Simulated assay, not measured.
Amino acid sequence: MNRRDLFAGVAAVTVALSAPALAQDAPLKVGFIYVGPVGDGGWTYQHDQGRQAIEAEYGDRVETTYIESVPEGADAERALTQLALAGNKLIFATSFGFMDPVMNVAAKFPDVKFEHATGYKRADNVATYDARFYEGRAVMGTIAGRMTESNKIGYIGSFPIPEVIQGINSSFIHARKVNPDVEMKVVWAYSWFDPAKEADAASALLAEGVDVILQHTDSTAPLAKAQEAGAIGFGQASDMAAFKPTPRVSSIIDNWAPYYIERVGAVLDGTWESKSTWAGIGDGEVEIGEITDAVPAEVKEEALVLKDRIASGEYHPFTGPLNKADGSEWLAEGQTATDEELSGMNFFVEGIGAEIPN
């Protein structure tokens, strides 16, 4: 996307959503930047559902706008600056790679509040929010381990950051719990949303004999490839229901709406403060989509029991004994990982033969 296209998009969206407020007080202007298109069917689609939930909740008390398909880097900084200059007093930046641009722009606009998804840098006017996706991966891994016939499971990673490494490890741990013969193959797409790269990654995995594909990328391309090959997969970030009942046999759904409604409400009533939030299945932020009838009833029941145990806090997906890939001990019997350990995770667990790129 070039600069003209980027800011033409800003203008078009702003004009479309900037009808004069009927109330005496001006509406709170809330901006979003997205790393992908709103029609990606995955990550960005779910964030935009949250934006729409804000409008439904607050009506003419708010005015929202968004810029889609913003690359992580200099373009993000320009897009954030444009939103701030346009009068948005609360801005949500919805991808990990927007972190430094958020911090740079926030320093220039101290009267604007920023929220950064999946990041770890904060300031007085910058909050962070994340979801415990690894909890949902544990459920998907259980289904994958039970349903693979080749004992080879594939995982398409986006970037080798802690969030993605958590997901790969959690999926593998729980696949192997129910099937000790499971192997995991990992392919890196180096993109959050690139259907062509994701399709190529899925094809590479299928060529290695994988019959179950998990993904931490945002398009439905891997599911389309799985469908062609007679393999199965899972919806990522959104339900991806168009591929039910198979190859999409279940999904991880990111439900951002409650958080967005809460944070906009905090700005409206003057209680907003910078904080870090990391919510999961028990909080309703990570949901498990319908497990279809393509999954045997006993496997479905096993997966739902695990989901409930995680939601209640009875079970933590990273519970020892667990070793690192190099064989060194990580977690002793019964020990659980701390949030600090998880937020900096930079290793695979024992049994995953893949390497983590630098």
Rank of each mutant, 00 (worst) to 15 (best):
residue 278 W to V: 06
residue 213 I to Y: 04
residue 337 A to N: 03
residue 334 G to N: 15
residue 103 M to R: 08
residue 82 Q to L: 11
residue 2 N to W: 03
residue 334 G to C: 13
residue 310 I to D: 02
residue 199 A to Y: 11
residue 112 V to H: 07
residue 148 T to F: 10
residue 130 D to I: 00
residue 102 V to T: 14
residue 33 I to N: 07
residue 7 F to I: 11
residue 334 G to M: 08
residue 319 T to Y: 08
residue 327 G to Q: 06
residue 253 I to R: 04
residue 17 L to I: 00
residue 319 T to Q: 15
residue 137 R to K: 12
residue 224 A to D: 13
residue 301 E to G: 05
residue 27 P to S: 10
residue 203 S to C: 07
residue 330 W to Y: 13
residue 249 V to K: 14
residue 3 R to I: 06
residue 88 N to W: 06
residue 13 V to W: 07
residue 185 K to S: 00
residue 301 E to T: 10
residue 103 M to S: 05
residue 6 L to R: 14
residue 349 V to I: 15
residue 271 T to P: 01
residue 55 E to P: 03
residue 73 G to S: 05
residue 14 T to R: 10
residue 322 L to F: 04
residue 145 G to N: 00
residue 316 H to A: 05
residue 103 M to D: 06
residue 66 Y to D: 13
residue 332 A to C: 08
residue 101 P to F: 11
residue 195 P to N: 00
residue 25 D to M: 05
residue 217 T to H: 10
residue 175 A to W: 14
residue 176 R to V: 09
residue 312 S to T: 09
residue 323 N to C: 14
residue 318 F to T: 12
residue 115 E to N: 03
residue 101 P to C: 07
residue 139 V to A: 00
residue 306 L to P: 02
residue 22 L to A: 13
residue 304 L to M: 14
residue 173 I to R: 12
residue 111 D to F: 04
residue 321 P to I: 12
residue 78 R to W: 12
residue 314 E to Q: 15
residue 314 E to F: 07
residue 180 P to S: 13
residue 326 D to S: 12
residue 50 G to T: 12
residue 94 T to Q: 09
residue 116 H to D: 01
residue 17 L to P: 00
residue 61 R to L: 09
residue 126 V to E: 02
residue 164 V to I: 15
residue 152 K to L: 02
residue 262 E to W: 03
residue 341 E to I: 15
residue 58 Y to N: 06
residue 284 G to F: 04
residue 167 G to M: 11
residue 258 P to E: 13
